[in-house]
Nucleic acid binder design. Structure first.
Lengths: 121, 121
DNA sequence: ATGGAAATGAAACTCATTTTCATTTCTATG
DNA sequence: CATAGAAATGAAAATGAGTTTCATTTCCAT
């Protein structure tokens, strides 16, 4: 198993805590850091597993990685500019739990994202 | 410009109103329909432009197409056997609308899936 | 008919992401 | 210190979704 390369995390932070793997890679290259694209992907993957980083998808399907706080939350993403708001999902948690119970499911997880156009777009 | 091929729409309907382009294509092939992958993509694209169909993204980034207006529902998926239950999401709809309004977002859509282990697994 | 516009699909292409595998770097233990 | 095994690394090849190109076919309107 690979562990997350700290330089990747540092770069993601420097990028405003929001970038795709390719962007992180290009950024590191441009700043003269010697690293392989494979390692960038692996590190981001590890950061996701360690729940230090969150993955979302751009409209074109490219994965974007984003530093996130530890409270479990959901996202409100603008389809226009990609701006993201972290939101509480109390209602969702309950809904998920209810639905799961109703159908006899255990060890529940869920995903929920809202997307639309922000006031600026 | 191309127009949407009615057989593609029919197949998407038959698929439960919810499938990726590749799935629609494979389904048509399996059922002996003669069609090219390109046409499937073009037709789905047109259906999206005509707002007959909606696009979402799977977790792996693959685009999935969904009939609009179709009373929209969510899925409860078993991580073990892949069994899927379609569920109502009234609570989610309200939550999404509220959150969006609260942050000044318009033209809202959302995704929400629950996953866990079913009673058999 | 017939000429042009729209539709079609095979194949080549793009591009993000994953896999493979040989090499390098650590690290624990003798 | 030596050194063997484990983990990390990255170049290159592979994968797979989606797009583009272009030659061919199908549709119509005249």
């Amino acid at each position: 198993m690979s562990r997350s390369n700290p330089r990747v995390l540092a770069t993601l932070e420097r990028a405003g805590g929001f970038a795709s793997a390719q962007e992180v890679y290009r950024l590191m290259q441009r700043e003269g850091e010697s690293i392989g694209l494979t390692t960038v992907y692996r590190s981001l993957q590890s950061l996701v597993n360690e729940k230090i980083v969150d993955v979302l998808r751009r409209d074109d399907g490219e994965a974007i990685y984003r530093l996130c706080g530890d409270t479990h939350h959901h996202h409100l993403v603008c389809k226009g500019c990609g701006d993201t708001v972290e939101i509480e999902g109390g209602a969702i948690e309950k809904w998920a739990k209810n639905m799961a119970q109703e159908h006899g499911y255990r060890e529940i997880g869920h995903t929920a994202e809202i997307f639309g156009l922000c006031s600026k777009c």
